[in-house]
Design a protein around this nucleic acid. Structure first.
Lengths: 339, 339
DNA sequence: TTTTTTTACTCAAACGTTTTCGTAAAAAAA
DNA sequence: TTTTTTTACGAAAACGTTTGAGTAAAAAAA
């Protein structure tokens, strides 16, 4: 690579001081028009770009916010990012994303690198491994130092920081209620193992809804999917032993998988079995029939998260962490019977 | 936020010089064990972290590479990132991702910010808008300055830089050939408008395959999907006028949409119509029947891309740009008739 | 003519590191 | 005892910027 051109280089070229060059490029009135022009031309010709590290070190702010995500395969996270970008760009910040890949170690590393001066604030959604290990020590220092940080979706209540979550419980109650209302008698739940927070919350909603209707929760109708194994087979096990007429699945993949299993076993959807998923992504929209689903509004979530963070970064006042709960709504499509 | 703790602070605390502190924290033999210990303890207690901006400015390298992507909703890009991360982490680099959201302006901005000292090298896949505008001036300076940059998937041949692409033409020929071999007589193509490079290349493969078999390309069997409008309706138009017995779609969404339209019109898949998509993502895998598809090996692509970049960054020798073409393979599932 | 103002610069500190070189004092060797 | 070596630290430059203060020289005002 060609050596980088710096103010010093240019200064030497014109036999002036570095500050003269700096001011020329900023079009300062302190410098004669003549010299300014020559310097600007030269700089342009040689592709001068101020070294952002130096600038940021000088200014003591980076105008950048870091985002640490478990993964970006999920459509939901993608939409959240859209929302984050919307707000940050509008307010003059850049966004940098790092992925933890659901790994504890990478999450720690990413946070380390971001918080050592590279960004003004941090947005985090916690990785599965971290949730499983239940080890959050890498956040402690940040919280103690009052580093601006906002958690979203996968949060931990231990921390005194801003949080944005969706109302998983209510969303799940609504979904389950809907299944009950349209006449489902045997409603299965397809969820995650217990250490995944959102899975647990959605399960809670399911249980509540069932109990509110005076029914008992039937353990045999609950599938806890272990993602390390074949998802479809685990759902087939359910159908081997039971014949549900309604399914509530805590994410898109589980919902579509369940729909496929049901259809393969000759169930007509929605005549024989109604299915509701969680998260409105392409899988749900392109399923046949399109899936009724709990819509999470990732975009709003991203916007809210970014707003909280930037407010926090820019405010001088005493900090009072808040928890924003976003409600969901049920998008009714063709995978559920109508009333 | 609490004031950041620096070497200077610590130095004042112990009434020693900054260099003593720096050396202590690096466990230098030049400092007495006693003092080192005290300083290290103090640093730990106060969460000292070296300011990475300062360190990187000093070292003149960031050990970070920037990735500019059009979007991350596509499963394909996600897998590419996995590959990139694999290699970069292994070789001691960090990855930062910025999204252009298919916007020309954001692409320019992202590249600006990355190349002004924040990263040692750049990986780029060009946005749709840039492709449409056909304006690549923001790359010119970089190429002239020999800034390490690798383009993947959506590349532009104008530039003298490393590139990694997949063999879209061959992949499409194979897919179309397969349809011909299993006996399809009227094979439709569902593709993008012409300014999207990959769409054009895949179309070329389709055309070649048809012609190689001595057939004429029937324009009425080609759908150019305009994504600003309803995708499904555009495919329905095809079925209104024609009754294809084979479909080659240039991406997952088009393939699944086509499958849904076909099924809604009473086609049995694959008995009445065979469908092949491009890119092996969750949509293809979870479709019913699962889609036969051209597998792109995003993971390998990411790995290769990162390798090229890091080699480039670390090599002192004369630079000779290369273009790596990755071949695809056809994953045959249930959406196509067997022979 | 002398004083004041303006113009067009330069100086130097600062941001937070790293690292080479220099040097007292203490310890070891002669 | 004197000389050499080792120990333990400090000074200062460097990375590339920004910016307020300082200053000659030129221009304008008195």
């Amino acid at each position: 690579m060609k050596p980088k051109i710096t103010l010093k280089n240019i200064a030497k070229e014109f036999d002036v001081s570095i500050s003269t060059v700096s001011k020329s490029l900023k079009n300062s009135h302190e410098i004669s028009i003549d010299l300014k022009q020559k310097i600007q031309e030269y700089a342009k010709k040689h592709h001068y770009k101020p070294n952002s590290l130096a600038v940021r070190l000088q200014n003591q702010q980076t105008k950048t916010i870091g985002v640490v995500l478990p993964n970006i395969v999920h459509h939901f996270f993608s939409t959240v990012i859209q929302g984050i970008e919307e707000v940050t760009n509008q307010r003059g910040y850049n966004v940098m994303i790092c992925l933890s890949n659901e790994s504890y170690e990478k999450e720690v590393l990413n946070i380390e690198m971001f918080t050592s001066g590279s960004v003004d604030g941090l947005i985090v959604s916690i990785s599965k491994e971290t949730q499983k290990k239940n080890d959050y020590s890498h956040f402690n220092d940040l919280i103690e130092d009052d580093f601006p940080i906002v958690m979203f979706d996968r949060v931990n209540d231990k921390f005194e920081c801003d949080k944005v979550i969706i109302d998983d419980v209510s969303g799940s109650i609504n979904a389950t209620n809907h299944l009950i209302e349209i006449g489902c008698k045997k409603i299965a739940l397809i969820t995650t193992p217990k250490h995944i927070t959102v899975g647990t919350l959605r399960r809670r909603g399911y249980v509540k809804a069932i109990q509110n209707h005076g029914q008992e929760v039937d353990i045999d109708l609950i599938v806890e999917v272990d993602e390390r194994e074949n998802i479809k087979e685990q759902i087939e096990d359910l159908f081997d032993n039971e014949t549900p007429d309604g399914i509530f699945a805590v994410n898109e993949v589980y919902a579509v998988s369940a729909m496929n299993v049901a259809r393969e076993r000759g169930f007509k959807i929605p005549e024989d079995i109604s299915i509701i998923g969680f998260t409105d992504g392409p899988l749900s929209r392109l399923a046949l029939p399109p899936l009724t689903t709990v819509v999470q509004h990732g975009y709003s979530m991203g916007k809210k998260t970014a707003e909280l963070l930037i407010n926090r970064i820019e405010s001088k006042e005493e900090f009072k962490p808040q928890k924003v709960v976003l409600s969901t709504n049920l998008k009714i499509r063709k995978s559920t019977k109508s009333l």
